[in-house]
Amino acid sequence: MKDCQCIFCNLSKDKEIIAENDLAVAFYDGFPVNPGHSLIIPKRHVANYFDLTSEECAAMQDLLRVIG
């Protein structure tokens, strides 16, 4: 997205993607609290977790199992 103000868009464009599916993406956190700390975010912009569809939640859970 051009000129996106989303913190995750700005973070993820310079990060190595460690796992991805149609609805979500995972990458290592730039400020990890422990080794391997990563972020899993939806590809669609939402205001908060509760705005995600059940499919997006499932996609994020799938990535958690892949990288966990």
Score class of each variant (00 low, 15 high):
K15W: 01
F27A: 02
K2Q: 09
G68L: 04
L52M: 15
I18R: 02
C9T: 11
E20T: 03
R44S: 12
T53C: 00
P35Y: 06
H45N: 08
P32A: 14
R65S: 12
D29V: 10
Y28L: 15
D62R: 03
V25L: 13
L39M: 13
L39Q: 00
A58S: 14
N34L: 06
V66K: 14
F31I: 00
K15T: 07
V25I: 15
I41M: 11
K13D: 07
C4N: 05
I7Y: 01
V46G: 07
L64C: 03
A58Y: 04
K43T: 02
V33F: 08
S38V: 07
C4E: 05
F50K: 11
N21P: 05
I18M: 10
P42G: 00
D14L: 09
R65H: 11
G68E: 12
L39D: 00
F50Y: 13
G36S: 14
Y49D: 05
N34W: 05
L52Y: 08
P35F: 01
S54Y: 02
I67T: 10
G36I: 10
I7W: 01
C9S: 09
N10Q: 15
P32D: 14
N21T: 10
M1W: 05
F27R: 08
Y49K: 08
A59I: 05
H37K: 13
K2M: 06
T53N: 00
K15I: 10
C57K: 14
L52E: 07
S12F: 05
K15M: 14
H37V: 10
D14M: 08
D29Y: 12
E20P: 03
Q61C: 04
F8S: 03
F8Y: 15
I41T: 08
Y28T: 09
Y28D: 03
V33Y: 07
T53D: 00
F8Q: 01
I67H: 02
D62W: 00
S54E: 14
F8H: 02
R44Y: 04
L39F: 12
L52V: 01
G30I: 15
I18S: 06
T53G: 02
K13N: 12
R44T: 12
D22S: 14
I17T: 15
S12N: 11
I7N: 00
R44K: 15
Y49C: 13
I17F: 11
A24K: 01
